[in-house]
Amino acid sequence: MAYRFDTFAMFFSESLSFFALFYLWSSIYRQGGQIGNYSFPDIVLYYFAANFIALVIKGTDVAWNVGDEIRLGKIVGVMLRPISYSKYKFFQVMGSYFFRGISYFALFALVGAFLFPYLGFVLDPWRAFFSLALMGLGGILYFLIFYIVGLTTFWLGLVRGFNFGFMMLVIFLEGGLVPLDLLPSAITKINDFLPFKHIMFVPISVFTGRMDADIWLFLVPAIWIAVFYFFAKFIFKKGIKAYEGFGI
């Protein structure tokens, strides 16, 4: 509640983007065009779900936050606490996911109640629950990726450019800009070997019924999470050895 203005403003900014995309795709479909195997309701539903995910997991700039704590020496104060830095950051970010998840879920449920009948979409509670669970894994994956990006401050000194670059890459490869199955096949083939689609595209595809709610869908993001977890540990260990505590 202390940050209710920022929460509202974030929602407003995502709504603006959503309405612009709504008009953009409307003008394509009004001319009778069809992009891939997406009908107009499919594409609106896709961006609706994408906006929800973006609002919940992207409200905290993890890399910038971690980078700032390293750059300004604040990390030393955190390390003196009886909790590891990675755990501290993890629970801090998960807390903010949870708060935003609850707030935006209520808002999106309200909008969805009006929007879904208009789009001819029937919500399957099991699919919704399944995709929420996948979204949770995607959120952890997103956190770990940007936590590692933040840790590069140990060597780079400033993480701004690297963070922004990675953000662009992730938005594109997770399906935040355009559904991944509409991209050229060369890109989708490469992307199949990367973790990013599990942040947004896979949970949305399950939610919209384009992908089966198969329990195996948890396996790949879980493996990526394990890989990134150990990599983050390794990077932190190396980084803290190289750290000179500048800014203190």
Binding site: L156, G157, L158, V159, R160, G161, F162, F164, G165, M168
Partner: peptide, 9 residues
């Protein structure tokens, strides 16, 4: 490095 990565971005 940050500057040049920003340019690449």
């Amino acid at each position: 490095i940050n500057f040049f990565i920003s340019v690449l971005t």
